[in-house]
Amino acid sequence: MPRFELLSPSLHAKLKIKSENVPHFTPVVTSEFFTAAASCPIMLTKEAETGRFYAGVVLSLKPGEPPLKTIEERGGFNPLSLQCSGFYISENNIVVDRDSPRFSDSEGGQLFTDSLQPGDNLRQIQQALGKYHAGIEMTQIFIRSLSELKLIEPVDMSLKFDNGERLTLQGLYTVSLDAIRDMDDATALTLFRAGHLELIYVLAASLQHFNVLAHLRNQQIIQSKKLN
């Protein structure tokens, strides 16, 4: 159960924050699509609770494994959802989940300066939170229109590695380029004017990064074999 507290200098003067634990898949918003798509596959998947689609980037190919690319290798792309993890917005206030593993009393950097002003890392998080929340609604609109126009299709992917391991990725969806081609002119124009068409192509093209991620993971496997 999350334990939410309104962020306040008095209450959280000594609270420290570590760098986030990077999961293999994390949500992204449409304003991040262009930078994200330069280094990672952007995929759609369903929320377990509601069945609704959301967009996310694939950072590693198996849950529990560290990212296959560093932030630098991703051209500096660091998903907003990760930057904000542990922090939420509630009616213009920042709320923290004290049970998030990011927070600590001993490790990491302080959120507030000794004079109880927001420190650099908190300022960055504030900015990221703002962008992320503005982006969530836009992303929902984008995905709703994909869903209504029936442009979403499931992706079945099975990857084979040199150690014989086979990974099957399930529950991932992308945009169907065939369905885009079958679209009538009026719909296409509406999507273009809404700024959705460019997002669609970026999303579809980013699928190619799976080849790179699979290659990187295979290299790691070969490396670790050599070391042993």
């Binding site: 069945g51 299709e153 969806y173």
Partner: peptide
């Protein structure tokens, strides 16, 4: 109840 409220996805 969830289907009535939130709907199922078509894919």
């Amino acid at each position: 109840r969830k289907i009535r409220e939130q709907g199922l996805q078509s894919v």
